[in-house]
Amino acid sequence: MRIEANGIAIAFDGTPILTGIDLALRPGELVGLVGANGAGKTTLLRILADLLPPAAGTVLYDGKPAKALGRRLLAQRLAFLAQGGGVQWQMRAEAVVALGRLPHRRPFADLTEADRTAIGNAFAATDASAFRERNLDTLSGGERMRVLLARALAVEAEMLLADEPLVGLDPRHQLEAMALFKRIAAAGTGVVVVLHDLSLAGRFCDRLVLLDNGRILADGPPAAVLGDDNLARAFGISVARGERDGAHFVLPWQALNHGEAN
């Protein structure tokens, strides 16, 4: 599924959050959405997922507005992973991941074989099968995040929008999660992840979208987006650069003084 956003703008209480956003998302592409705190990443992701109506502009899914597509069909084709998603009740991890199958199930119907396969695959993909039977509130923050990610994967959507899916993950599982995103993108799913780790974003993503104060400052291949000027302007930082196995990487190094940043 292609998502096309044109002229998106929104303001909260008179403060503009996003202005003039044009963005096209394609299948088979891993896109990293980066930017400083308050740059508008979560708001943009929610608008792209049809969870928040923009004040101006349109979002089209394969050329059609969400209304024309219908709530259920959109839910089957687009999965959304909320930021820091808490779970209210002490449900077992398995029951939580099964929620990802709700868009595909008839109300009150039993899980089908396809549902069970999807749930099993999602657990395996996030390396969470070991705590399938555990209550979510007995898991650590990172383990819980992996279960919630498995929940989003279980939808088996054509487009996955994930808001900070690496929060709380240990380095190994961060790397594995990024490799997983890259894998499912290579298999044809469109993946958009909000990230704060510029090193991982630069290494794994096919494309980065850099937000700065509600505008797109740069949109393109990581090497072009993560230039010194862009990073100074968007984050107020300088980075160290390196190369390993033929791949370039950046490492946030120093906060710049305000004068240097602009």
């Binding site: 929610r46 709530r71 959304f80 992973l81 909320a82 779970v87 709700l102 199930r105 919630l148």
Partner: peptide, 18 residues
Amino acid sequence: APALDGLTLGEDTARSLG
């Protein structure tokens, strides 16, 4: 009942589930 299950993970997730 199904919507209440979906709501377990918060309002945004419930809406994203349709």
